[in-house]
């Protein structure tokens, strides 16, 4: 990934400021009101592009002027201390924040050039295109089969039972769960182990063939072995899907992502190739965080 020439003048202005900023402040916890994201927050093959997004809960502002691109078939990790707004930001990407009372999103979020917050956009269609996996595995209280078949059924994607069976099997295989559950497809999804449940949720999400998958700390409720399997899975999936993953674990970000975004108190501090973020971060706050001075 490299910095790219931007298309319009506003962005040009932004990027010119960005490179001139040197943070030399002694206290990394100080964050000035006039912050600027450092690093390569723009890419040239952007699947989603987010510009100057603010999110409010009632009167409280949770996200401050965030701009970042998510490249096609890229895995981007979002890290940062608790309460820094990374989950809120993620939920803004498929408009899950609509379900929260008093939540308001300002700014411009586009996918393939289409404004996600335009009144003309259909949320149902959007969410079918941008899937989501949650922090805690949340299989529906139905059988494994019905969990995976849920998406195709509501969207009317399968014409016949055979089609549906095929879709379920393909999704379960892609979520590398098929071998474990093929003999008990009609048992309750809630009876699986935590890691299996989370893979079931991933299978459920990919059954409708979304273009982007958002993952909100998908491994935080899992043990290390299950986590490793999910991480492997993310890597496989990244060949076909664009993935944005919020994680609490820096190691996980380092293992699965190509780029990493660091959030701090609702502000996007730095976006850079993962390797760079973890070896020589541009911003002092990022450095403090990855060296464990807070978080």
């Amino acid at each position: 990934m490299q910095k790219t020439a931007t298309l319009d003048a506003d962005d040009m202005a932004d990027s010119s400021i960005k490179s001139s900023v040197k943070v030399t402040n002694a206290n990394p916890l100080d964050i000035t009101d006039e912050h600027v994201t450092v690093g390569s927050y723009e890419v040239n093959n952007a699947k989603m592009s987010i510009k100057n997004v603010n999110v409010y809960y009632g009167d409280k502002q949770a996200i401050f002027d965030v701009s970042v691109d998510i490249g096609k078939n890229e895995v981007i990790a979002m890290i940062g201390p608790s309460g820094c707004g990374k989950s809120t930001f993620l939920r803004a990407l498929n408009r899950m924040n609509d379900t929260v009372d008093g939540c308001r999103v300002e700014g411009d979020i586009r996918m393939d050039g289409q404004d996600l917050y335009s009144p003309k956009l259909d949320v149902v269609e959007l969410r079918a295109r941008v899937g989501m996996v949650f922090q805690k595995p949340n299989p529906f209280p139905k059988s494994i089969y019905d969990n995976v078949a849920y998406g195709p059924k509501i969207h009317g994607l399968a014409d016949t039972r055979v089609d549906l069976d095929e879709m379920v099997e393909r999704s379960l295989r892609r979520a590398s769960l098929w071998d474990e559950v093929k003999d008990r497809l009609y048992q309750a999804g809630t009876g699986l182990s935590g890691g299996q449940q989370q893979r079931l949720c991933i299978a459920r999400a990919i059954a409708v063939s979304p273009e982007v998958i958002l993952m909100d700390e998908p491994c935080s409720a899992l043990d290390p072995i299950a986590t490793a399997r999910i991480e492997e899975l993310i890597e496989e999936l990244s060949q076909n899907f664009t993935i944005a993953i919020v994680t609490h674990s820096m190691q996980q970000a380092a293992r699965v992502s190509q780029r990493t975004a660091y959030f701090h108190l609702g502000k996007l501090i730095e976006v850079n190739p993962t390797e760079q973020v973890f070896t020589m971060p541009e911003h002092a706050l990022t450095e403090s965080y990855i060296t464990g001075r807070f978080g």
């Binding site: 259909d122 149902v124 269609e125 079918a128 295109r129 969207h155 009317g156 994607l157 409708v208 063939s209 979304p210 273009e211």
Partner: peptide
């Protein structure tokens, strides 16, 4: 292409 086909179906079901 699969995804596009899906998209059409979704849109028509809306």
């Amino acid at each position: 292409s699969n995804s596009n086909r899906n998209l059409k179906r979704i849109q028509s079901s809306l």
